[in-house]
Amino acid sequence: MSIINSVQKLSLGKVLRENPTAQGLLLISPTTIYLLIFTIIPMILVAILSLMIRGMYGNVVYQINLANYVRLIDPLYVRILLYSLGVGLTTTVLTILIGYPLAYFIAHTPIRERSLYLFLILVPFWTNFIIRIYAWIMILRSEGFLNQLLMNIGLIEAPLNILYTPTAVLIGMVYEFLPFMVLPLYTSLEKIESAQLEAAADLGAPPWKAFLRVTLPLSLPGMIAGTILVFIPAMGMFVVPDLMGGAKTILIGNVIRNQFLVSRDWPFGAAASILLLIMTLIFTLYYTRKAGFSEELLI
């Protein structure tokens, strides 16, 4: 037995030393195995689960059918889905509007100062995201700082109800996702050569035209990468609506969470997850094909 073992060991060692393919496979195998067990198999499980039905006691009945997907066509869920899409898109547009000037500013400061400005964007956003939501709860609640400020300067007489409304959800989402837009945009803007803009100027283009015809198109890969990084998590987000939206704002993420942990209808929750997944995949594939980028996703 031991002889066989040592012979195998010898040949394995020899194979490894002389065969780069075997070395590569050995190095990648822990990742392959881990991804397979803890990402791929769970996903396949959810896909199968979405074809089952919920039993009497919240258990899963193994009976293949499409009932859960049919239920998703119900106007109630279609409305939630469209609303989630709307929230995701609005968040994305707002982060572009706020993030673009900031990224442009950083890309045009002297190189020495840039890392400081980038650092200043990253610090608050590496802090826990529940803490960031909490900061906005302190500001927006009826006895919060915003209402006090507005009342003190006499702009309003009674406190505004902002917290626990869809507006509060948007404020929270934009604050959460802003750096995911700024960083890829910065990466794109930073690469634009001054020569290209000088050429535009030499050819008689006014600055705004040079911006529209040169800067904006060249920053598109960054904007698309940012859109993917903002839109997808915003679509599936359930924590911000939970803490800032009250009972009024329900997104698809809340539906999925509720099916799994409250109503215990796992098959229906799985179907909603698969739908969300398909939507995000279509979105990602469509946009990554439209513009070639890779560096921008590496924030």
Partner: peptide, 13 residues
Amino acid sequence: IIPEVVMGISLLA
């Protein structure tokens, strides 16, 4: 790329 909530429920399942 996938939404966190989907990854969360898949691991739970």
